[in-house]
Write a protein that binds this DNA or RNA. Sequence first.
DNA 1: GCGACAG
DNA 2: ATCTTGTCGC
Length: 252
Amino acid sequence: MGDYTHEDQYMKIRRPWFRPDPELDRGEMEEMQREIAEEADWSGGLEVEEFSVVAGVDQAFHGDKAVSAAVVLRDGEVVERVDAVTEVEVPYVPGLLAYREGAAAAAALQRLELTPDAVLFDGSGRIHYRQAGLATHVGVLFDAHAVGVAKNLLCGYPVDEVDGLQEGERVRVEADGDVEAPAETTLGYAFQGKQDSSGRINPLYVSPGHRLDAETAVSLVESTVSAYKLPEPVRLADEHADDVKEEVVRDS
DNA sequence: GCGACAG
DNA sequence: ATCTTGTCGC
């Protein structure tokens, strides 16, 4: 038979029909996002302790090239680091980020030999106009546990003041009229990780992407925060993407 | 027309 | 995201 176990478990696209297609027009992209949101699972089920192998993905750009990097950590230790250079085909449009960066992120994830228990993305998950941000889109594409970690709030609103949050504190983010979801639906949380070296006060906006609930998503992010504001997997992926981008800049 | 907008 | 020096603060 051979090693079918590996073939069975590595990061693989399970729903190819949701591959971010740059040829679609805006209306078609938005419609696909609604379909993705219907497939998404935000019902929890696993405890934070069950996610021991966590990956972070992030992109860097140079001209029409996108550099995506994925870094996998196991109990705080880096166990794998990969990257992929692809062509950027779509401009940045708020609400359609997955069509610009999703394919690049997927390319990097497909190069992983390890199978992470969860993937952290640099962007929103459920905190999105159609509840299908980058983390939701790619999470559903791979049917993987996915979390969105954004530095800014795309939509929805924090139910309490977020200025002056202390480290570790979180404030629920609810849907408002800009979101295609019942009012008061919990989309995610504003979470205060470590402050910047300059004592900044802006929190991270964490939202579930796929296969976990908002509470588990924040707890998972909290468990991977080290000495910086960003959770370690994302911070290291960002760092690696920048390194690879420099190489791309060299031979150009 | 005005305002808002992940990376 | 990206382009960038000096500089405020612990």
